[in-house]
């Protein structure tokens, strides 16, 4: 493994130029409260390369910044620091019309398929509005475009004349996917796309996403808290904790050779059918991002933490063929 550039991820990245490249990407929110302004560092110093055609899985618990990172990569959250490159072009600073044009290439599939569809629009308009605005269709060709988009996600043409509330959760998520696909994007962030769905419907939607990627050559960032789903869809998996990536490697690396204690805990905690005894649960709560622990952010819950962990924050380094941010491995 050769390091081509300082800070570049070194594992599992195919040799072709990355489709999307983030360096030092950070997102901070300013919250005005009773005690004045509080800066919430949701995402910190992320270096990430995503190769064309790959699926990068992003796992972590609520509040770890995984959704914010996903939104930052498609320019729905602004970077406070760092750079973002798409197909070799800097996109971190784009505004106005150039940014709106760029959005064709970068799409998002939302978690809640109900609240992400405008309740007053029929499916035809939900799917067809943006292609019309971007000039991908004319008023005459719109029906065909919508029908194609619907059929691609396994919905009948007749769905175009209905409103979102007339569909089940799984069908709504299909409509959301059809809407994203209608712009012929290159990169899709799927933000917990199945966690609001029933178990039996989840697998339908996961299968659809995998199939679409194969047929259309899409690149995904798949954000989820369910490690098993992420493991299934992803080529590589990144584990986030308190706004930072703590381990990143191929799906097999993460599944078979996890090195970070947090990754191990996540793997052990995932409820597994047929197991009668719960794994020894991780102690304590996730600390606040506003007031992270000194040194390693995970040390307060880490079963193997040592004094040195409180002193300095471990950087990602290559261990066992993939990257881990831990002093003790």
């Amino acid at each position: 493994m050769t390091v081509t550039e300082p800070g570049a991820p070194t594992t599992g990245v195919p040799s072709s130029a990355p489709l999307l490249k983030a360096r030092g990407a950070s997102v901070e929110f300013t919250v005005r409260g009773r005690r004045g302004k509080t800066v919430v560092p949701a995402v910190q110093d992320i270096d990430l390369d995503i190769a064309p055609g790959e699926t990068l899985g992003l796992v972590g618990e609520s509040g770890c910044g995984k959704s914010t990172l996903g939104r930052a990569l498609v320019r729905l959250a602004d970077l406070t620091r760092g750079t973002l490159e798409f197909q070799g072009t800097q996109i971190g600073e784009l505004k106005g019309k150039p940014l709106r044009d760029l959005r064709r290439d970068l799409q998002l599939v939302f978690q809640d398929p109900m609240s992400s569809l405008n309740p007053r629009m029929k499916v035809r308009e939900l799917i067809g509005e943006a292609p019309l605005v971007h000039g991908l269709a004319t008023k005459d060709s719109l029906d065909d475009l919508v029908a194609t988009a619907l059929e691609r996600v396994g919905m009948p043409r007749s769905a175009a004349d209905r409103y979102p509330h007339q569909f089940s959760g799984g069908q709504r998520q299909r409509i959301g996917i059809a809407r994203a696909l209608a712009l012929e994007p290159k990169f899709i962030v799927a933000d917990e796309p199945v966690s609001a769905l029933d178990v039996s419907v989840q697998s339908q939607v996961v299968n659809l996403l995998v199939e679409l990627q194969r047929d259309l050559g899409l690149t995904y960032l798949f954000v989820a808290h369910d490690l098993a789903v992420v493991d299934y869809v992803s080529d590589r998996v990144a584990v986030m904790y308190l706004g930072r990536i703590v381990e990143i490697g191929t799906d097999e690396d993460i599944r078979e050779r996890p090195r970070h204690p947090y990754t191990k805990a996540l793997l052990a905690a995932a409820p597994e059918i047929g197991r009668t005894e719960a794994a020894a649960p991780l102690a304590g709560d996730v600390p606040s991002v506003v007031n992270p622990p000194s040194g390693c952010p995970f040390r307060t819950r880490c079963p193997i933490a040592e004094p040195q962990c409180a002193e300095s924050r471990p950087e990602l380094r290559v261990v066992d063929g993939h990257q881990v941010a831990c002093h003790l491995v």
């Binding site: 609240s115 992400s116 405008n118």
Partner: peptide
């Protein structure tokens, strides 16, 4: 609401988002 973010993510112009969504 997420559908307004969705409209933004689709690259719709601000006035249109305001008017239609």
């Amino acid at each position: 609401l997420p559908y307004v973010e969705a409209a933004r993510s689709q690259g719709l112009p601000p006035l249109r988002i305001l008017r239609k969504h």
